[in-house]
Write a protein that binds this DNA or RNA. Structure first.
Lengths: 100, 100
DNA sequence: AGGAAATATTTCTGTACAGGCATATGGGTG
DNA sequence: CACCCATATGCCTGTACAGAAATATTTCCT
């Protein structure tokens, strides 16, 4: 599964957002989300395979940590578009400056 | 369909990439892509509904233009992650790993 | 060793959706 | 008006995948 697809699923984005607060066990994620335990587990598997999270076994807990690097692929893809629309905004600014 | 899902499909990303070169008719897009005409047309519909492209009717042609603004939602979502990995110097590591 | 806790996996069901082909629609031209 | 071109839409099939419930697995604790 591509990083793009991994991130297309709202629950998976929510998991990543939660992990931005810091490492968290699978159970803690389940508590914080409105989704069944198997559901969360399955999404965690997808995120693992996309390289977006890393697991550390701690006792019987699995502690998950954010691994944001693969997101760079999306950032890189977006880059030319950002330039596009900022140049458009520049044009708009320019236009407004000339026609107040 | 969310912007995230719209962009998750490789053919749709390809369409957007092509449109970065400038406006283009549907037929021109079909010529440039390895996908049937109906296939391209369906993806164009999805992109229209996501607000990522705009159509202009010109004779019997439909001329499509890039409308990059909705991508900002993705950029905004990514922003905290960019800060995360730049603060952790993951970005530098990544860069050094690829350019030793 | 036995049981409980934490998590993963399997199984099932429904749904979404991509792709191809055939067909409809709408505008342009003779 | 009849015909052609460009594009959209319908229909069909296969596949991927999300969610729920039940079950398996691993590890800790006593």
């Amino acid at each position: 599964m591509s990083v793009f697809s991994a991130v297309a699923e709202p629950h998976r984005r929510q998991i990543l957002d939660l992990l931005r607060e810091g490492e968290m066990s699978a159970g803690e994620l389940v508590e914080r989300m409105d989704l069944s335990q198997p559901g969360v587990s399955k999404h965690l598997k997808a995120l693992r395979e996309a390289g977006l999270v890393a697991v550390r076994v701690h006792g019987r807990r699995r502690v998950y940590a954010l691994e944001p690097e693969p997101l760079e692929e999306i950032v890189d893809w977006l880059e030319p578009y950002r330039m596009l629309w900022s140049s458009r905004l520049d044009r708009l600014e320019h236009h407004l400056r000339e026609n107040p």
